[in-house]
């Protein structure tokens, strides 16, 4: 496979994952704006900083008004991380790697692009927002389904999956990090209204507010939530789950190519930091410090993969 193709697949799936994650963040923020309008501005601010867009946003806007933030995150073409921009980038990458994709996967991506270039042509009215956000998640599921159902399990598939999980890992770590203070086990805050809102939003941002209730036999409390999002292998957006997936797809590559690369060691190192840990020891290390270094290590890992598989040169 061409190095460029591997890179195209990796970025195509990173972009698709980013579109879905952004939709989820908007959904959680929108909910706060509707139910607790006093907290809306703070909430939108943290959504913007979670998507690493604070500088770009503040260059254009002075306030964190709901409609403005939503518009920025959904459609602005000069926000490289807006849903519009990342879906376009996913589709451009898909065109570039067209020969590596099945017709089903290509059609799903192309159709997604056609749909969104239409849906996002004009600002999305509040009334239509839930529908548009749901469509983003549906289309993302469609592409994923086509990938699972029709693609050969070879290196092409592995690069797609690695892109997905590097992006998801980064996203989950950011969501927790932006609100890490709400998850610190400080007894004085427990049960306060503020904490409950934050916890619920964090869980909603990773679509885990329902599954938490089912999977965790515990009350809502900081360490149970942190444990769920960071260490619980059952949650498909937890850091542990993502690292395990990355390691396993990289291992498949090592097997197919009969060669282990520096990126394999980085991935193993990342997994070791999460394996057999308990949440108390992470709190001891410092939650914010821990998350910052995970974000950094994930970025390094992505960079190393690009190098080792010659995405660019």
């Amino acid at each position: 496979m061409l190095g460029k193709t591997a890179g195209g697949l990796y970025w195509m799936f990173r972009s698709l994952e980013r579109a879905e994650n952004t939709a989820r963040l908007i959904e959680a923020g929108f909910r706060i704006a509707l139910t607790r309008s006093n907290d809306a501005e703070t909430e939108w601010k943290s959504v913007i900083s979670t998507s690493a867009a604070q500088i770009a946003y503040e260059q254009k806007h002075d306030t964190y008004d709901s409609a403005q933030v939503v518009n920025f995150l959904l459609r602005e073409a000069d926000n490289p991380n807006s849903v519009y921009s990342v879906v376009k980038s996913a589709r451009d990458n898909a065109r570039m790697v067209r020969t590596a994709l099945t017709t089903e996967v290509w059609s799903a991506v192309n159709e997604t692009w056609m749909l969104f270039s239409d849906l996002l042509k004009n600002p999305v009215h509040e009334t239509d927002l839930p529908g548009v956000l749901a469509t983003i998640r549906q289309q993302s599921a469609l592409v994923r389904g086509a990938l699972h159902g029709t693609m050969l399990r070879n290196d092409i598939y592995d690069f797609c999956r690695i892109g997905t999980f590097i992006e998801r890992m980064d996203n989950t770590a950011r969501i927790i990090d932006v609100k890490y203070y709400a998850l610190l086990p400080a007894p004085s805050f427990v049960g306060s209204r503020m904490d409950n809102v934050q916890w619920e939003t964090i869980l909603r941002s990773v679509s885990a507010h329902q599954s938490f209730r089912w999977a965790v036999d515990d009350d809502f409390n900081a360490s149970a939530i942190a444990n769920f999002l960071i260490l619980d292998r059952r949650l498909p957006r937890s850091l542990s789950f993502c690292t395990a997936q990355i390691v396993s797809n990289l291992d498949y590559l090592a097997e197919q190519y009969d060669a282990r690369m520096p990126c394999h060691d980085l991935a193993d190192g990342l997994r070791a930091r999460l394996k057999d840990r308990d949440i108390a020891s992470i709190f001891e290390e410092g939650l914010h410090e821990f998350l910052s270094s995970v974000i950094q290590d994930t970025a390094n890992l992505g960079f190393q993969i690009e190098q080792n598989y010659r995405f660019n040169n």
Partner: peptide, 30 residues
């Protein structure tokens, strides 16, 4: 892309290629 796909061969751009030992070679993941 259609013809490359139908023939089952790689679709390359200039920056995927370089001269290696007197031949034209494409940069692959291996």
């Amino acid at each position: 892309s259609f013809l490359a796909d139908q023939m089952g061969v790689e679709l390359v751009e200039g920056h995927d290629l370089r001269v290696v030992d007197g031949h034209i070679a494409m940069r692959t993941t291996r």
